[in-house]
Structures are given as structure tokens and as C-alpha cells.
């Protein structure tokens, strides 16, 4: 077979590569609108700048916490990826008497937690759609769930919108954590349909500010 013929075949066969279906235009538009609306109501322009400025020095603090925590992971018996979040929530209370620093450390830890939850739910939905349900998903959901509950219980949680996102996240994680390892197809559909209908993932993302605060240890 000569190169021209191969190229022709290659071109034809390549058209079938990840062939896109009809885009869900209306659904995506509704999600975009809802997410933008949520961001707008949460972050008026000036406040975003102030928020980031306020975060500039505490990011250093958060990085220290993450580093201390990373060292702990390397030396300690547990290697659960979500453990740092719990440490970040509890450590400032024990070591700092400055309420502003406590609150900022809480905010940074929450942002990291939400970013991790976003990655988890995105992966979970993609696998669920292919009919794949791994028992390890339920383990990861349990870890995220315990951190979510720690955050909900914290006195530093004063933002009602963040509380609402965390409460919804808790519900979703409870459902995933309780999925049976076999024959969970219907429940899997219920969870993914619920996520979709409530537009939860865009809402979760709108609670994660852009910029350095969304740094997640171990991810770049």
C-alpha cells in the first residue's frame, strides 16, 4: 500500500475518532448562566481583589501547613490523600490565637477541599456514565465526606452560600459512599441525574475562587 493510499485511509478512519454527539446546547447554557450568576452574586469585583490580597500572606501559612502535613504523610503511617484537609482545618485553631488567620486558613483549606471534590465528582460522573463503578470510589467518597463534615462543624463557617454547597456535597458523598459494590446501577443513575439536574458541579466550582487560593497540594 503506498503512502497516498495510507493517508487517505488514515483520514477516513480518523473522522470516527471520538465522534461527538449532538451537543446539549440548552443544558450547557443553563449551567453556564447559573454558574456565572452564582459567581457574580458571590464576588463583586472589588471584593475579589480584596479577597485575593487578603489571601496573599495567608497562602504562605497554608503552604506551611501543607508542607508540615506533607512531611507528616511521608513519615506517618497514613497516606490518605484527603487527610491534609482535616489537618488544615484543625491545626490553626490549636496553634493560632488570631481569628483572622484562623478564618483565612479555613478558607484556604475549604478551597482545596472543594477543588479535590470537583476532581472526584468529575471523574466519578465520567466513569458512572460508562457504567463503571469502582469500590474505591466509595472509599474516596468516605474520606471526602469526613472532611466535609469537619468543615460543616467548624465555627469558622460563616458564609451561608458555602454552607449550602458543603451541605449539598455532603448529601452527594453520602449517596456515593453508600453505593453497593454490585448492582448499584439504578442508584448510580439517580446520583448522576441528581448532580446534573441540580447543576451541582458548576455551583461547586463557582465556590472555588480562581487564582492561587485554588492550589491543591500535589496538583499543579
Amino acid at each position: 500500500m503506498n503512502d497516498d493510499r495510507l493517508d487517505e485511509q488514515l483520514h477516513d478512519a480518523a473522522q470516527a475518532y471520538n465522534l461527538p454527539p449532538e451537543p446539549p446546547r440548552d443544558e450547557m447554557w443553563e449551567n453556564i448562566r447559573a454558574a456565572r450568576e452564582a459567581r457574580r452574586s458571590r464576588q463583586p469585583g472589588a471584593e475579589v481583589i480584596n479577597f485575593r490580597r487578603r489571601l496573599a500572606w495567608p497562602i504562605g501559612l497554608a503552604a506551611l501547613i501543607a508542607l508540615a502535613f506533607g512531611l507528616g504523610r511521608m513519615t506517618g503511617p497514613s497516606s490518605r490523600a484527603t487527610a491534609p484537609i482535616a489537618s488544615a482545618v484543625t491545626t490553626p485553631r490549636a496553634t493560632s490565637s488570631n481569628p483572622a488567620a484562623q478564618n483565612t486558613a479555613y478558607t484556604v483549606a475549604t478551597v482545596q477541599h472543594l477543588a479535590r471534590a470537583d476532581a472526584f465528582l468529575t471523574g466519578f460522573r465520567a466513569d458512572a456514565r460508562k457504567g463503571r463503578h469502582d469500590a474505591q470510589f466509595t472509599g474516596a467518597a468516605r474520606d471526602l465526606l469526613s472532611n466535609t463534615r469537619l468543615m460543616l462543624d467548624s465555627p469558622d463557617l460563616t458564609d451561608p452560600r458555602l454552607r449550602s454547597v458543603l451541605e449539598d456535597l455532603e448529601l452527594v458523598l453520602v449517596q456515593i459512599a453508600q453505593l453497593p459494590s454490585e448492582h448499584g446501577g439504578d442508584q448510580l443513575d439517580l446520583i448522576t441525574d441528581g448532580l446534573k439536574q441540580r447543576g451541582f458541579i458548576p455551583r461547586l466550582r463557582s465556590a472555588i475562587p480562581a487564582g492561587p487560593a485554588s492550589y491543591v497540594p500535589g496538583e499543579s
Binding site: 475518532y17 471520538n18 451537543p23 450547557m28 453556564i32 468529575t122 465520567a126
Partner: peptide
């Protein structure tokens, strides 16, 4: 522009959920 963005996202992701997420995030 949505069709072109979605097509590209889908070709790269190979998954409708991810393609939808990526398209939404692109426009946001």
C-alpha cells in the same frame, strides 16, 4: 461558537460528561 468548542472538547476528552464540563468552563 458552542458547536465548534464542544466538538473540540469531545474529540480531546472522548467522553460526553467531560466534554460538557469543558465546554461550560470554556464559556464561563
Amino acid at each position: 461558537h458552542v458547536d465548534r468548542v464542544y466538538r473540540l472538547a469531545y474529540r480531546l476528552a472522548g467522553d460526553p460528561t467531560l466534554a460538557q464540563d469543558f465546554t461550560q468552563e470554556t464559556f464561563i
